[in-house]
Amino acid sequence: MTDTTEIIVEPGRQDIVVSRVFDASREEVFAALTDPRLVAQWWGAGGPGELEIAEFEARRGGTYRHINRDETGAEYVFSGVFHDVEPPQRVVQTCEFEAMPGHIALESASLEETDSGGTAYMSLSVYPSVEARDAIVAAGMEQGVRAGLQKLAELVES
């Protein structure tokens, strides 16, 4: 399985754009983004360790909280609020890496059907400042996104 993930981090901007095409239906990809049992199988798949989904209610006003534990037991916690959930085409939520309080991103993921029957995924994350965006990038965001989307592909394309 080839990694087709594209990540755009332009200098001087406060956003990150991520795109990838999955060889799976839009409904399957949407389910993997919004069903906590499926999210637990791919999210935060950057390395050894475990993911605990402490909260997850994919509906307008619902919240989520993921606790990633690495092999040493260190915890990396991400949380947010769902602002819009439109099956099977869009999810809008906030995301905060709790180790960097105040660097809250507004994330919008959209899913479009491709001519070949797959799904084009595009995510736009907007941070409160260029500095906040750059801090997340420096913390290893790209590696984590690539690894997670690769696991997502393995899940929905099998």
Rank of each mutant, 00 (worst) to 15 (best):
W42Q: 07
W43I: 01
W43D: 02
A45Y: 10
G47T: 08
G49W: 00
G49E: 04
L51H: 08
E52I: 05
I53G: 09
A54Q: 15
E55F: 01
F56I: 01
F56R: 13
A58H: 00
R59C: 05
R59F: 00
R59V: 03
R59E: 11
G61H: 14
G62F: 00
R65S: 06
I67A: 06
N68F: 11
E71M: 06
G73L: 07
E75D: 04
Y76L: 08
Y76A: 11
Y76Q: 12
V77I: 14
F78I: 08
F78L: 12
S79V: 07
G80P: 07
G80R: 09
V81R: 13
H83V: 01
V85K: 07
P87E: 12
P88I: 01
P88T: 06
P88F: 00
P88Y: 03
R90L: 15
V91E: 04
Q93T: 11
Q93F: 12
Q93E: 15
Q93Y: 12
C95P: 10
E96I: 10
E98M: 12
A99E: 11
A99I: 14
A99P: 09
P101D: 00
G102A: 00
G102Y: 08
H103D: 11
E107R: 05
S108F: 08
A109F: 07
L111V: 10
E112H: 13
D115P: 06
T119H: 02
T119P: 05
T119W: 01
V126C: 01
Y127Q: 02
P128S: 03
V130F: 11
A132Q: 13
D134V: 09
V137T: 14
A138E: 15
A139S: 15
A139M: 15
G140F: 13
G140E: 12
M141D: 01
M141E: 04
G144H: 04
V145Y: 04
V145H: 00
A147K: 04
L149Q: 03
Q150K: 13
L152S: 02
L152M: 09
L155D: 05
